[in-house]
């Protein structure tokens, strides 16, 4: 653990340095225009100071994003007029509220996608017809841009009276089932011929072979797939929240931010999404470590 801290800190420092350096030329135009309009001469120092602290910068500086994140989570909920402290419910202006909307849909979509992926993988491994027919369709499904598909799914489901969490979750499931199928087909086929022969000598049934050999053998593959799947699920939810007139969720925050040129709002929502994604992947990793250790397969 301690050995990885130094490289990580170094990389973070370099990224922050590049980010700060980039803020100056990107935001300088606006600073110069303002100065020209007011007829003021600017020193380099003035330009640097201004570009890192604009109200609506083209590229907000890291500390601005951090401040905005803090203000739209902790400060909003504890001190805001609509915050949880004053009203008992989460404020619709806080990233905690929007993050939760996105997170809950992500988890539902992930569960649906994983279940679907598992069922398809088991079918592919056990059924010749499915083996030949399902995979090309699964691959084709992933070549369609989700951005084009998402609004149609929402509209169609809306027309049949399905609204709220489910349409978003379906889009997330559409993205997250694929890595599970691919990983689990490989994982369920991981046992070699000898291990399958062994179960044959016991006259084990198909379900017994699945339960006692194929599924345990596929665990390392499953977790690798789940990590990709849960991240894909989050992307699916944010995409689903973008073009569909959703008023809540991190995707809606991103869209609202871009409508009104609120770059700070966009960037803080982006980071909130990244934090949620990293936490989810980390959580899957934790479950993986515990599971594999219990199975005596810890590395």
């Amino acid at each position: 653990m301690t050995r990885s801290i130094l490289p990580v800190l170094t990389v973070v420092t370099v990224i922050l340095a590049i980010w700060y350096a980039a803020c100056i030329p990107v935001n300088a135009q606006w600073t110069r225009d303002q100065a020209a309009r007011a007829g003021v001469e600017l020193t380099l120092r003035d330009i640097v100071a201004d570009t890192l602290g604009q109200q609506r910068p083209r590229l907000p500086a890291p500390h601005q994003v951090a401040q905005e994140l803090w203000a739209s989570t902790w400060v909003e909920e504890t001190q805001g007029r609509r915050g949880i402290v004053n009203t008992g419910t989460l404020s619709n202006r806080s990233l905690i509220f929007h993050g939760w909307v996105t997170l809950s849909a992500t988890l539902l979509g992930f569960a649906m996608g994983t279940a679907m992926g598992l069922v398809l993988a088991i079918g592919i491994v056990h059924n010749r017809a499915m083996d030949r027919s399902v995979m090309p369709w699964a691959i084709a499904s992933q070549t369609i841009p989700i951005l084009a598909l998402a609004p149609m799914i929402i509209v169609v489901l809306n027309a049949v009276g399905i609204t709220g969490l489910i349409p978003k979750a379906i889009i997330a499931a559409y993205l997250s089932f694929f890595p599970v199928v691919v990983g689990m087909v490989k994982g369920l086929r991981a046992p070699d011929a000898m291990q399958l022969d062994l179960l044959r000598t016991y006259n084990a049934s198909g379900p017994e072979t699945l339960l006692k050999l194929r599924l345990p053998a596929s665990m390392p593959y499953l977790f690798a797939s789940l990590k990709i799947g849960i991240a894909a699920s989050l992307v699916g939810i944010i995409v689903a929240e973008l073009p569909t007139g959703a008023v809540s969720g991190l995707g809606a925050r991103l869209l609202a931010g871009s409508y009104f040129g609120q770059t700070l709002q966009i960037w803080s929502a982006l980071f909130a999404a990244a934090i949620v994604a990293a936490s989810l992947v980390g959580l899957v990793g934790l479950v993986q470590r515990i599971t594999l250790r219990r199975m005596g397969m810890a590395t």
């Binding site: 000898m194 291990q195 022969d197 062994l198 000598t201 016991y202 006259n203 050999l213 345990p216 053998a217 665990m219 199975m295 005596g296 397969m297």
Partner: peptide, 16 residues
């Protein structure tokens, strides 16, 4: 289940 079979490799399940 008339016979027990021993293969070239032990083939023990690593998770058991």
């Amino acid at each position: 289940r008339a016979y027990g079979y021993v293969f070239q490799a032990a083939g023990l399940y690593p998770w058991r």
